[in-house]
């Protein structure tokens, strides 16, 4: 930062200084709105994982560790990503499809 720029900022800062509490308040409001939404989400994912495992397991043999669930929260929509690995053997998918 140039000397001039620095000085200009501090002069402006001096006149505009109104205290940092409003910034703290706004940051907290935004953060907590998000964190309250996420709270309990890990439980939701665990429940989804178990139910998906049960549904697929009725038709195809699936290993527990081969079901991955992720949730990506966006501003307006969130993406639920379900990744199920199914074995490609004769008594796996083929047998279930027959």
């Amino acid at each position: 930062m140039t000397m001039f720029g620095f000085r200009r900022m501090s002069i402006l800062g001096f006149f505009r200084r109104r205290g940092s509490a409003p910034v703290a308040r706004e940051r907290l409001q935004i953060l907590l709105a998000y964190e309250r939404g996420v709270r309990g989400q890990s439980d939701l994912l665990a429940i989804l994982r178990e139910e998906i495992l049960a549904v697929i397991g009725k038709h195809v043999p699936v290993e527990r560790e081969n079901v991955q669930i992720k949730m990506d929260r966006g501003d307006t929509v969130s993406m639920l990503e379900i990744d199920v690995e199914i074995p490609n053997s004769a008594d796996g998918l083929l047998a279930a499809g027959a």
Binding site: R18, G19, S20, A21, A24, R25, L28, Q29, L32
Partner: peptide
């Protein structure tokens, strides 16, 4: 009062 610390109302509202 000088806006340097969250006030009571802020904390309770949050």
């Amino acid at each position: 009062a000088r806006g340097e610390m969250l006030n009571i109302e802020d904390v309770l509202e949050i």
